[in-house]
């Protein structure tokens, strides 16, 4: 990708809110969470919202780091690797009970499956199928509006 800062933020919000939501809907019933499905959905969607909100901060950091690259690009694998720091921060916040709306403990396995499925799904869509409906997206630095 060759994103602009605005494009990064817009793409993240839109893709997580759409593709991320669909994947969360699909994967939540399969997660090893010992709680009613309603509670499980509440937990996974709050995690999704956390990734979106924190992601806006992350995008500023990525944009800053990108300035050291001559190409001013964000290679495909960077978009995948960044799941590690982002996932770690969300997990630490969950453990510290700093995520509003989630009071109980989220099993690590459930978190990993949920986070990885959503992240990889969004990453795959961003690296190809996204261009099918949004023809101008890749030439506008990831901006959708």
């Amino acid at each position: 990708m060759v994103p602009t800062l605005t494009g990064r933020i817009q793409t993240r919000i839109v893709l997580l809110a759409t593709v991320g939501s669909v994947l969360t809907l699909l994967v939540t019933p399969l997660l090893p969470i010992h709680a009613p499905l309603g509670t499980a959905y509440k937990t996974t969607f709050i995690i999704l919202a956390t990734v979106i909100v924190l992601g806006i901060v992350w995008e500023f950091i990525y944009h800053f780091l990108m300035q050291w690259r001559w190409e001013k690009d964000w290679p495909t694998n960077f978009g995948l690797i960044t799941l590690v720091p982002e996932g770690l921060v969300v997990w630490l916040l969950l453990n510290a009970k700093l995520v509003p709306g989630i009071h109980g403990k989220v099993p690590l396995a459930a978190f990993l499956i949920d986070f990885l499925v959503v992240w990889i799904g969004v990453w795959l869509v961003a690296n190809g199928p996204m261009r099918v409906p949004f023809l101008r997206w890749r030439f506008h630095g990831g901006r959708l509006a």
């Binding site: 994103p3 602009t4 190409e71 001013k72 030439f139 630095g141």
Partner: peptide, 12 residues
């Protein structure tokens, strides 16, 4: 050219 001329910040 640097890659971002085709859509990123250098293009903008």
């Amino acid at each position: 050219y640097p890659k971002s001329v085709w859509g990123g910040q250098l293009k903008a």
